[in-house]
Every structure is written in structure tokens, then in C-alpha cells.
Design a protein around this nucleic acid. Structure first.
Lengths: 110, 110
DNA sequence: TTGACATATCGTAAGGTTACGATATTATGT
DNA sequence: ACATAATATCGTAACCTTACGATATGTCAA
């Protein structure tokens, strides 16, 4: 017997947690935690867009948009494909849709 | 007619987005985007804990834990109740469970 | 009241993030 | 080859975040 050995606070069992996994999760969330990047995720979940299109929608210069997109690509959120002089970005991480739905249901809706 | 008026890229309609809502969402995500804070959220979703208990689980000094908890309280994530010299924290934001589930299914599981 | 415990707050130094401007790269058309 | 368009990268300054140590506040017990 005795699974916890110390402090009998009558709680429904403490969840286990690998510290490394929390760090990795925090990294990705940090990447998501920027208004422009959230908007870009929302847009790209609805289709393909170029750097310039995303920049214009977000009212920021192209090079700033490019840096945000690079950050998110590093996280595995997006991939990019060049077509002529344009570069199209698209969602690569399947869980982004779920997470964005959670965020939208809390902040972008009733 | 003519809902978009410019650029016929054959996309399934660009989602609308209130810039203020994205900023607010980004603020909250930033608060969540820290390994210690993620662990605290996970723990508090499973029950009530004191500052000292959370600090010990996270292997950080009490004052650091206290600051993390204060940040999350400011966001509306938690509330606190004093009981004697202990202070118990608990989840106040109902959406935290959904968001945490999304994060767990991506990072803390298969 | 005194001492000890639990939590909170403050000042600060180290490190990280962001946007900007300038410059580089890649592709296209003439 | 040249000019131009679209995107990417780099250096930098302003700002934000974090953890730490010291100190303060609140609570209890003797």
C-alpha cells in the first residue's frame, strides 16, 4: 500500500508531468502568443496565403511578416512553397486547428 | 453582390478578426506559455494546492511560485483563499480545462 | 509579545523578444 | 544584362520577462 506516502489532502491524484514536455509546450505557446501570429494562424487555417497578403492583412511591413512566419515555421506550425516570386505558407501542424478553436471559443466569440 | 471586391484567389472566405481580441488572447497565452505555469495549471485543474505545495512540485522557491501565481490570477485564471497561514489557489477560468486538454493532447501524450 | 512559518512584494541584473531600416537573395520580364 | 518585384536576413535599440535576494506582511502558538 501507500502510494503517496506523504500528506493526506484527499485530492484526486496528482497528474504526472515530464518537465521536458512542459518546456516544449511552453516554447510553442510562446510562439503562438502574439496578436499578429494568432491572426496569421487563423488565416492560414482557412487557406493558403503569401507573405505579402498576410502582411497586408495584419498591417505590418513584409519583412516583419516574414520574420513572424519564420518563427512559426521553426516550431513546425507552417510549411512554405515558392511559386514564382511569391511564397505561399500553409498549416503543417494538425493540432493547430484544435488549439485555435479553443482560443477562438474563449476570446473571439461570445 | 460582390462581397470581397478584390483578388479572386478561390479561398473559402477570409475569417474576420477583431485586432483587440487577438491582443487579449495573446496576453493570456503569454501568461500560459511558461513551463512552470503550465505545470501549475495542470495541477490546479486536478485540485486545490497551496503556494508551498506548488513550489515544491515545481522545484522552485516559494517567492517565485507566488509571483507566477499572481500573474495568472491577474489574467483571471485562478482565485485564492487564505486558510490560516496557507493560501490555496484554484482554477477560476472555465476554459482553462479545454485549452489544457488541447495542449496535453499535443505535447504530453502520444 | 516573541518567535517561527507561509506568503507576498520590491529592486535589480541578466537574458529574451520585437520592430525597424538596410541589405541580400530569388525570380521574372524586357 | 538590367530593372523590378517578392521575400529573407542581419544588426541594433527599446522594451519586456525572469529569477534572485532581501524585506515586508499576515497568521498562529506559546
Amino acid at each position: 500500500m501507500a502510494t503517496t506516502s506523504k500528506a493526506a489532502t484527499a485530492q484526486p491524484a496528482k497528474p504526472v508531468g515530464d518537465p521536458g514536455a512542459f518546456s516544449q509546450a511552453a516554447e510553442c505557446l510562446k510562439t503562438l502568443a502574439h496578436p499578429v501570429r494568432l491572426r496569421m494562424v487563423q488565416l492560414l487555417l482557412s487557406g493558403r496565403y503569401t507573405v505579402g497578403e498576410l502582411a497586408e492583412d495584419c498591417s505590418i511591413p513584409d519583412n516583419v511578416a516574414s520574420e513572424h512566419l519564420r518563427l512559426m515555421q521553426r516550431c513546425g506550425f507552417f510549411t512554405s512553397e515558392r511559386e514564382g516570386r511569391r511564397v505561399y505558407y500553409q498549416v503543417a501542424e494538425p493540432h493547430l486547428e484544435n488549439i485555435m478553436n479553443c482560443i477562438e471559443s474563449r476570446f473571439l466569440k461570445g
